[in-house]
């Protein structure tokens, strides 16, 4: 009797142990699946992006100034796209970052409880709005306005794209900088106030410098957003592979991939994957920078 019970208990124990092992394995697999995705994405992009670069030649591909993928004598130079993405991102940062930081200062330090809540809700809503909506507004409002104001034949150009991008990066710049500003220890500000500095002096000379790593993270995040945006830019930038000029119709790295994908084939299609690979390299660089900044900020605390 007792022996039989022991055997049964042993079997139950074995089954329970097995369940534990199975669940542990399952959770471990789930844990590493994000790593797996990153590896798969990288591998797929490299495998499909490298051949065309080999065929075109790295220098001709990166520094060629002419993109004519469907011409009889096709030419695959992506310098116009790279420069457009860099200029467009830079422009968006120049407009969006100061505006965003000042708004964050307002929300964190000057707004009353109700105004701060309203700002927070509005910023949340704006960061959640799909990019196609920004594109739609850009297409219907910004592009015609730019055409009228500057007397151009067409308002779909780099300038319109910069305007739309700066508005699009505002919400993330504001919310990340605001968090950074709120994270500054109260003692810093109190010390400054006690020394006779006014509130505004304190905010600009003490709080902002103390929050600089968080604000830097906001800027880098904004850069990432701007350089990766595709749909909104596609709707307002004119989408012509020109070398960038402020009032030229231009094509970004992102839109270069999107605009020809549906009808491309052969080397042209492979070259699009190579463009995506270049964009991916840019983004990875930005992410690594962001990671470094955030980590260093954590250490200081």
């Amino acid at each position: 009797m007792a022996a039989a019970r022991d055997i049964r208990a042993g079997r139950l124990k074995k089954a329970a142990d097995m369940l534990e092992t199975v669940m542990r394995t399952l959770f471990t697999v789930c844990g590493f699946i994000a790593v797996g995705f990153v590896v798969i994405i990288t591998v797929f992009l490299i495998i499909s992006g490298v051949p065309a670069i080999g065929e075109i030649g790295l220098a001709d591909f990166l520094f060629g100034t002419k993109w004519a993928s469907t011409a009889a004598q096709p030419s695959f130079g992506i310098l116009p796209f790279i420069l457009t993405s860099v200029y467009g991102t830079f422009g968006a940062i120049v407009i969006g970052v100061p505006l965003g930081i000042l708004c964050a200062v307002f929300a964190a330090k000057y707004a009353s409880g109700k105004a701060a809540a309203l700002t927070g809700g509005l910023v949340g809503l704006m960061s959640g709005i799909p990019s196609v909506i920004y594109g739609l507004i850009g297409m219907i409002v910004v592009v015609p306005a730019v055409r009228e104001i500057f007397g151009l034949p067409d308002g779909a150009n780099l300038f319109s794209a910069i305007i739309v991008l700066s508005v699009m990066i505002l919400p993330s710049v504001i919310s990340v900088s605001e968090t950074a500003l709120r994270g500054v220890p109260k003692e810093y500000e109190e010390a400054s106030l006690a020394l006779g500095a006014t509130k505004t002096e304190t905010v600009f000379k003490v709080t902002l410098p103390a929050a600089k790593s968080g604000i830097l993270a906001a800027v880098v995040l904004g850069i990432g957003r701007a350089i990766g945006e595709a749909m909104a830019v596609m709707m307002v930038a004119g989408n012509v592979p020109n070398m960038p000029g402020l009032f030229q119709s231009v094509r970004f790295l992102t839109t270069a991939v999107a605009s020809e994908m549906s009808y491309s084939s052969g080397l042209q299609r492979q070259a699009l994957f190579s463009i995506a690979l270049v964009l991916f390299a840019f983004i990875m660089l930005i992410n690594l920078t962001l990671n470094l900044i955030v980590k260093r900020g954590d250490k200081h605390k």
């Binding site: 992009l45 990766g228 999107a258 994908m261 964009l279 983004i283 930005i286």
Partner: peptide
């Protein structure tokens, strides 16, 4: 993964 732009995900 959170930082990769959606156009790359599409591709």
């Amino acid at each position: 993964l959170a930082g990769i732009p959606s156009i790359i995900y599409g591709l």
